[in-house]
């Protein structure tokens, strides 16, 4: 396992938003779920990793080299896939292949047509003629076919139905399994999907990283309990890490230990639960 991407204290100031000293690393063989609210800085961080924005402070290292100093061939190892296809939608897919074959040194034409066949995408169709699900698949196919080993995916599952999302998750898992020198950073609002495929989570809130942890550690670290008002009043407040009030009830986040596991009604906290507790929850 090696560090493929090091995001080192990057800062970007906008008029209404600040990306504040964001730091984390992406290791090979891992799929990272990048989680946060709308406007928390996910897309800005992803753009920074891919060199789409100029940073005020900090740096992004790809294979220990500064992003700005990368050779074009090394640069192609990194791919950013936004939530929409960034290719001319009035062109036929076979022409897109011709364009990308010239534009990228590492473009794998055979793999491209293999994926098209696998996903029943007609090469004679224009991109605009594809359904939303097909477009999302085509978007990821383009990323996979120029042999990038670092995929940065910004909300790639937006608008997909559950079946398409499942296929999408399988595609990403296979991609990582094929070569262990690969990594993926993926953001999504649907955290349950991320939980299926991600090995790690990076939580961002208000332009700051609030937690970076392996999924298995996260899952084994926290428990969640729903309490009504009366039960909450008599509950031992010292063991509550965070709590939030929903109507007349309370939800509390507890550490996962033997003692807490024995509480009636306790359940494992999901990544989504943890995120909500971290952002909306309060400490006593």
């Amino acid at each position: 396992m090696s560090t493929l991407v090091k995001v080192d204290s990057i800062t970007k100031n906008y008029k209404t938003f600040v990306l504040d000293k964001v730091s984390f690393t992406l290791e090979s063989g891992h799929i990272y779920g990048f989680v946060g609210e709308n406007g928390s800085g996910k897309s800005t961080t992803m753009k920074a990793i891919c060199g789409l924005i100029n940073l005020d402070k900090g740096q992004v290292l790809i294979n220990d080299k500064n992003l700005k100093e990368l050779e074009p061939s090394d640069r192609e190892k990194l791919d950013f896939t936004p939530d929409e296809i960034c290719l001319p939608d009035n062109l036929k897919i076979r022409f897109i292949n011709k364009i990308l074959k010239d534009a990228f040194d590492n473009w794998d034409e055979n793999l491209f047509f293999k994926y098209l066949k696998t996903f029943n995408i007609d090469e004679n169709k224009k991109i605009k003629e594809l359904s939303k699900g097909m477009k999302a698949k085509f978007n990821i196919i383009v990323s996979l076919c120029h042999n990038a080993n670092i995929l940065i995916l910004d909300e790639p599952m937006n608008g997909l139905d559950p079946v398409a999302r499942d296929e999408f998750c399988t595609l990403l898992s296979d991609y990582i399994d094929e070569d262990e020198n690969r990594t993926i950073l993926i953001s999504s609002h649907i955290i349950s999907d991320l939980e299926k495929i991600c090995s790690d989570f990076v939580f961002i809130h208000d332009g700051k990283i609030i937690l970076t942890e392996e999924k298995k550690i996260l899952e084994s670290s926290f428990l969640k309990l729903d309490l009504d008002e009366d039960s909450y009043d008599v509950f031992d407040k010292n063991i509550i890490i965070r709590f939030k009030k929903t109507g007349r009830n309370y939800e509390v986040l507890l550490a996962n230990n033997n003692e807490n596991q024995s509480i009636i009604g306790i359940e494992k906290a999901s990544a989504e639960d943890i995120l909500i507790f971290l952002i909306k929850g309060k400490t006593l």
Binding site: P72, D79, C86, F104, H146
Partner: peptide, 12 residues
């Protein structure tokens, strides 16, 4: 189609 975004982030 935001092509610049795609091209720059893909190494062009």
């Amino acid at each position: 189609c935001n092509f610049d975004k795609f091209a720059i982030s893909s190494g062009i």
